[in-house]
Amino acid sequence: MGRIEQAFRRAREERRAVIAPYFTVGYPDVPATVEGVSAAIRAGADLIELGVPFSDPLADGATIQKSSTAALNNSVTLQSCLEVTRLIRAQFQDTAIFFMGYYNPFLQYGIEKLADDAAAAGIDGLIVPDLPPEESGPLDDVISRHSLDLIYLIAPTSPDERIEAISKRARGFIYCVSLTGVTGARDAVSAGVPALIQRVRAHTDVPLALGFGISRPDHVASVAPIVDGVVIGSAMVNLMGDTPAAERTQVVENYVRSLADAGRR
């Protein structure tokens, strides 16, 4: 059984939602990313999304845009992201780790080489927000041969036919986008979430993780009864950027623990 499946099975047995924080690699700097991820795992994160920075993140709001620009200014490349993965994997063997990034940096690295190097570094899958199933064939075919999962996204605007088609291809879990919009912390969870989750469940038994706009423990508590996992993106990035280095480990641990507690059903 792979790490992704194990993470969702363990959470189900413990009657809680999988907690999946997102870190832009190299924001505010590379050592901070390793430190922040380690703290999050110690505090109960089941799955880590490592954001591979891109110059033109068109599905992202201001927070992740800013962090990506800063990371690129820190000379972060896909190579650095692989190194960060190796460092984390050396400490934590059971946590599922993903790359989340736009297609072009993966494409330029070379899909075959990416699959080899990512699998060797300990990556479990890829989330590529600008790669819908119509275009995902070349990447999906190659990485699946290396036992890496390509995680597909479903949005509130996805009609039932698309949900059905995406569900057939899905491995690992499906990333459900909570709202019609870009990433970024919001005050409240979108009212459309229960309807979206119900529509997706009608087509698949694959675990469903919910992301976009989930930033607080009360958000997690409100959706934990109906989803299998939650992704915390911009709020995590803000925390990493705004917290003084000396306090970072403690602040990240406290935050992730509060999310994990809120995720218990």
């Binding site: 068109l58 599905a59 819908p132 275009e135 949005a155 605007t157 009609p159 698309r162 986008v177 919009g181």
Partner: peptide
């Protein structure tokens, strides 16, 4: 060519 866009835009 092709269409490399977020899922949210695919229906559009």
């Amino acid at each position: 060519g092709g269409r490399y866009v977020p899922e949210t835009l695919m229906a559009a």
